[in-house]
Amino acid sequence: MTLYIDPPTWPGHGRLWSHLVSDVSFEELHAFAATIGCPPRAFERDHYDIPEAHYADAVRAGAREVGSKEIVRRLTAAGLRRPKGRPAPPAQTTTALTRGTPLTPTPPPAPTTPSP
């Protein structure tokens, strides 16, 4: 599990904020955020907004300190970047395919008419 946090330099609502991200998955990010007590409402597109007062908590819990540009590089390389103004990618299914399973649904059998 590797999560990253940038310095609390982003102003908003009278505070300074950091961004917490994962370069593996949103599931990993949500799980980590829950362990440090970050509410779900703090999630925005591809990161959690972490107030300066909780920055040290995230670092103590294992988030690696990196710069803001590194946050963007890691999100982009992982395919997890969701910039403002662009729709989120469609939800990916987690259903595993087994060998021989068709990728498209098989059409239902044609209706039969009863014999006289």
Score class of each variant (00 low, 15 high):
Gly85Glu: 04
Pro8Cys: 10
Ala63Asp: 09
Pro51Lys: 07
Gly12Gln: 09
His30Phe: 09
Gly85Gln: 06
Gly12Lys: 12
Thr76Ile: 06
Glu44Lys: 11
Ala88Ile: 05
Ser22Gln: 10
Pro111Gly: 00
Ser115Met: 11
Val72Leu: 11
Gly14Asp: 06
His19Ile: 08
Leu29Arg: 05
Gly12Cys: 02
His54Glu: 15
His19Cys: 12
Gly62Ile: 03
Pro11Ala: 02
Thr95Lys: 15
Pro105Phe: 01
Leu29Ile: 05
Thr76Leu: 09
Pro39Asn: 04
Pro105Leu: 00
Cys38Ile: 03
Ser22Phe: 11
Tyr48Cys: 03
Ser115Val: 14
Ala77Asn: 08
Gln92Gly: 13
Ala53Gln: 05
Arg45Asp: 05
Arg86Gly: 00
Ser18Asn: 08
Trp10Asp: 07
Gly37Glu: 10
Thr98Trp: 14
Pro8Gln: 04
Asp23Leu: 12
Ile36Thr: 12
His47Arg: 11
Ala42Trp: 01
Pro87Gly: 07
Ala78Lys: 05
Lys84Pro: 10
Thr112Ile: 00
Gly37Trp: 07
Ala88Asp: 14
Glu52Arg: 12
Gln92Thr: 12
His19Trp: 14
Lys69Arg: 13
Thr95Pro: 02
Gly62Ala: 03
Lys69His: 11
Ala91Lys: 14
Pro116Asn: 07
Thr101Ile: 03
Pro107Asp: 00
Asp57Gln: 13
Val21Gln: 07
Val21Met: 10
Thr9Pro: 09
Gln92Val: 10
Ile71Trp: 08
Val66Gln: 02
Ile36Tyr: 01
Phe32Arg: 08
Gln92Ser: 13
Ile36Asn: 03
Arg74His: 03
Asp23Gln: 12
Pro40Tyr: 01
Val21Tyr: 09
Arg60Asn: 15
Arg99Pro: 14
Ala96Ile: 14
Ala33Val: 02
Leu97Phe: 11
Ser25Arg: 11
His30Thr: 01
Ile5Tyr: 10
Asp49Glu: 08
Thr112Lys: 03
Glu52Gly: 13
Pro8Met: 01
Pro102Ile: 00
Ser68Val: 00
Gly79Lys: 07
Asp23Met: 12
Thr98Gly: 12
Ala78Leu: 08
Trp17Ile: 08
Ala61Gln: 07
Gly100His: 15
Met1Trp: 11
Leu103Glu: 13
Phe26Pro: 03
Arg73Thr: 05
Tyr55Ala: 06
Arg45Ser: 02
His47Asp: 06
Pro89Asn: 11
Thr2Gly: 07
Ala91Cys: 02
Pro90Ile: 01
Phe32Lys: 09
Pro102Lys: 01
Thr76Asn: 07
Glu28Thr: 07
Asp57Ala: 15
Leu20Arg: 09
Glu27Gly: 04
Gly37Ser: 05
Leu29Asn: 04
Ala31Glu: 13
His30Pro: 01
Pro83His: 13
Asp46Ser: 03
Pro39Phe: 01
Ala96Met: 14
Thr94Asn: 10
Tyr48Met: 02
Gly79Trp: 06
Phe43Ser: 04
Val24Ser: 12
Pro90Gly: 00
Ile36Val: 14
Thr101Gln: 15
Ala78Cys: 08
Arg15Gly: 02
His54Lys: 15
Ala110Trp: 14
Arg81Cys: 04
Arg74Leu: 13
Val24Leu: 11
Ala88Pro: 03
Pro83Gly: 09
Pro111Tyr: 00
Arg73Gly: 01
Arg99Phe: 15
Leu29Cys: 07
Arg45Gln: 08
Gly100Asn: 14
Val21Ala: 13
Gly67Met: 04
Gly100Pro: 15
Pro107Tyr: 00
Glu27Gln: 10
Pro51Tyr: 10
Leu97Asn: 13
Cys38Ala: 13
Lys69Thr: 06
